[in-house]
Design a protein around this nucleic acid. Structure first.
Length: 117
DNA sequence: GGCGTGACGTCAG
DNA sequence: ACTGACGCCACGC
């Protein structure tokens, strides 16, 4: 039977996943940035929910998502170390305080930036 | 259809 | 720089 799961418009979660998958190696995106690109500028927490519930299942590059101050959101002992290691493996450098330089590593999606022309 | 969950963002102090 | 308070809301039960 028709199991009408399809939507006319992709769900926020689907958008967010697609965006996260397009973050290139060596770059990072913030929760708020992803939320805005997915159509909800105030949806940063929903992005966190998406990662929490789907990063494993959908093989998302979850480690490339950090908070707006350039810091890793996960707590030590709950993924912080793993995430930091993965980012360092991609060439990112951390300051003493544990943050990365967003001016340098923040991803700027070309495609959406040139949207209508 | 209400409610808890959540890896956030921002601002005041 | 750090902390607490508050706003935000999609999603799965």
């Amino acid at each position: 039977m028709m199991n009408m799961k399809e939507r006319l418009v992709p769900s926020f979660a689907d958008q967010a996943k697609r965006i996260i998958k397009s973050i290139p190696r060596g770059k990072v995106a913030t929760y708020g940035q992803i939320a805005a690109l997915a159509g909800n500028p105030l949806g940063a927490r929903q992005v966190a929910w998406v990662l929490h519930s789907s990063s494993r299942k959908d093989k998302l590059p979850w480690h490339r998502v950090i908070n707006s101050s350039g810091r890793i959101a996960l707590a030590p002992g709950h993924g912080y170390e793993t995430q930091k290691a993965l980012l360092m493996k991609e060439g990112l450098k951390f300051r003493k305080g544990g943050e990365v330089d967003l001016d340098r590593y923040l991803w700027s999606p070309r495609r959406l930036a040139l949207k209508d022309r």
